[in-house]
Simulated assay, not measured.
Amino acid sequence: MTDMMTEIAVQSISALVGAGVASIPPLIQLARTKKTLPQAKGAGSADRGSSAVVAGESINGDVTVSIDNSRVVISNMTNSAPKVMTEKAPSASDGAEWGAFVAVAVAAALFASYYTVLSWFVLGVIAGVVVTSTVGAVRARRWRLWDRASAIVATEVILALAATVWAWIAIFTAEHAGASLESLRARIAADVAASPAQPGVGGWLAEVFIAPVATFFKIAIAENQFIFVLSLFAAFLFSFALMLIGWSRLYNWYTYMGFFLGKGSERAVKRALRHSELKASDLMVFMILAGLTAAFASGLLVVLADHSFTHPPLPAG
């Protein structure tokens, strides 16, 4: 009973952390901008630059207009950091390769031993992204800032959510030659627990991270399950990368819309600039990553190796 309550508590905390990580930073920015919203009513107030009327028509003597509020945003971005606006869009920071390597190593360790807890974290992230993207879309419509880049972000979020759900369905239901990820994980836990514990921080790292991964792949190779395990891990990794990229694009979107209400820092300008320069090719890359995620989750790699893979059923509808 105690173990079950502990497991429920850990899973609940994991989900809450995931939801907080995904939703709190953008929503904090939303709360900050709302403080200035009362004096920002009416597009084209003096402190935010001039709006541009791009269309208008008369209905029963009343003139209805469409406002291009992106002009206000660009004006405030330019006034905040004119030098950044004339530079090429900022690229990834130095050391990103090493960061990616460490992230993959940590992800492998978590996937090998704690993928159940990890699934609750991902569930929380999904909930947070849904809330954040919905609020962002409402705000963009209300402030007349819905444009091509906004549509790209919305499409990417939908793709990321679909790919992630599909990947985790596979992780929990896929079988290969009578083995599932859970049955392999149970054996890994038993083998690691049977190994003598080493003292100190090094021993803890070996027990928590190194030993599970090493045992995972040892069992997988010995029982001809390596491609199966690798395929599911790749599906998890690609889906997590999609969610991370999608969340980053959401945050950039929020930063961009924040300039509707005034000026910001140079760092904020760089983020907003990344959003404004999104193009169709970025969406194509995202679609390719989503396709790879679906392919790995569906067991295509395993099917190419043999024909004993039982993949999860296609979602209804």
Score class of each variant (00 low, 15 high):
Phe172Lys: 08
Pro315Arg: 13
His311Thr: 15
Leu292Met: 14
Glu57Ile: 02
Gln29Arg: 09
Tyr251Trp: 05
Val201Ile: 15
Ala186Thr: 07
Thr2Gln: 01
Val73Tyr: 02
Trp247Tyr: 03
Ala316Gln: 15
Arg32Asn: 11
Val65Tyr: 03
Trp143Ile: 01
Ala108Cys: 11
Tyr254Met: 00
Ala177Val: 00
Arg142Thr: 15
Ser281Asn: 09
Ala40Tyr: 00
Met284Pro: 00
Thr134Gly: 05
Arg267Asp: 08
Ala206His: 13
Ala19Ile: 04
Ala305Glu: 13
Ile126His: 03
Val213Gly: 10
Ile210Tyr: 06
Pro312Gln: 14
Glu7Val: 07
Phe238Ala: 12
Val285Ala: 10
Ala160Trp: 01
Gly124Arg: 08
Gly18Lys: 11
Phe236Ile: 05
Leu184Met: 14
Arg142Val: 11
Asp147Met: 05
Ser150Asn: 06
Val84Gly: 00
Ala177Asn: 15
Leu110Glu: 03
Trp253Glu: 01
Ile221Lys: 15
Lys83Ala: 03
Pro82Trp: 12
Ala280His: 05
Val63Thr: 10
Val125Ser: 12
Ala206Lys: 15
Phe209Ala: 15
Arg48Trp: 01
Arg274Gly: 08
Trp166Tyr: 08
Met243Asn: 13
Asn224His: 12
Pro82Asn: 03
Ala197Val: 12
Thr155Gly: 14
Thr33Cys: 03
Ser265His: 11
Arg141Met: 06
Ala109Ser: 15
Val201Tyr: 15
Ala235Ser: 11
Val303Phe: 14
Ala290Val: 09
Trp247Glu: 01
Val102Lys: 05
Ala160Gly: 04
Leu123Arg: 10
Val117Lys: 09
Ala295Glu: 02
Met243Gly: 14
Gly264Arg: 14
Ile74Pro: 01
Ala189Glu: 05
Ala167Cys: 03
Phe216Lys: 12
Gly20His: 09
Gln198Thr: 09
Asp3Val: 10
Pro25Tyr: 01
His307Leu: 08
Leu237His: 13
Glu7Ala: 14
Leu161Val: 14
Ala96Arg: 10
Met4Asn: 10
Leu244Thr: 10
Arg274Gln: 07
Leu273Met: 11
Leu292Lys: 07
